[in-house]
Amino acid sequence: MQEMAEDAWQVEALYDLCFAPGRKALSSYRLRDDVPPVPAFCSVVKDDDGIVGGAIRCWPIRIEDHDALLLGPVAVHPTRQGEGLGGLMIRDVLARAEAAGWPRVLLVGDAPYYERFGFKRLNGVVMPPPTNPARVLGFGPWAGVRGRVRKRLDALPD
């Protein structure tokens, strides 16, 4: 289900639980500073009591003249891991993004995990330092797209 404003505190608590304390110091967060996520691609999975067990967010970015979504963070509560929630959320976001006219999705992550969803290592797409280039992965049509990844501050396409 789409993340709602009242879910934000649970989502942030989940990210704090699942990631290292310095997660906001990562270079991918520089692309999120002062930029709201794209609400249509921010989802949560809740149990019957309304507790968030998984969350995914996407942010608008630009590489030269090409628009894309920055996928992440993706998190699943440790008590819910192994249920396939992460894969479910990733596949859902990729399908909805493509249908909405966002065919390119980028993330920084482990290729062996994300390859199963169609992500491939991107050559020539440069994240802010200090990002390991081997962890810059893309989904969708990336042929000919090269350059620095920048945050997108202008209005989003419909």
Rank of each mutant, 00 (worst) to 15 (best):
E3R: 06
M4A: 15
M4T: 13
A5K: 14
A8Y: 06
A13T: 11
A13K: 10
L14T: 02
Y15P: 00
F19A: 11
P21K: 08
G22Y: 12
L26W: 04
L26T: 04
S27D: 09
Y29N: 11
D34F: 10
P37R: 09
P37T: 06
V38Q: 05
S43T: 13
V44F: 07
D48G: 13
D49F: 11
D49P: 03
G50M: 12
I51H: 12
G53M: 12
G54D: 04
R57W: 07
P60H: 07
I61F: 03
D65Q: 15
A68V: 08
V74H: 00
V74R: 02
V76T: 07
H77M: 08
T79P: 05
Q81S: 05
Q81G: 04
G82P: 05
E83Y: 14
L88T: 09
L88V: 01
M89Y: 01
I90E: 00
I90F: 03
D92F: 12
A95V: 05
R96W: 00
R96T: 08
A97M: 07
A100W: 04
P103I: 03
L106W: 02
L107P: 00
Y113K: 01
Y114E: 03
F119I: 00
G124H: 08
V126Q: 06
P129R: 13
P129E: 15
P133S: 10
R135I: 00
R135T: 07
G138S: 02
A143Q: 15
R146Q: 13
V149F: 00
R150V: 13
P157S: 09
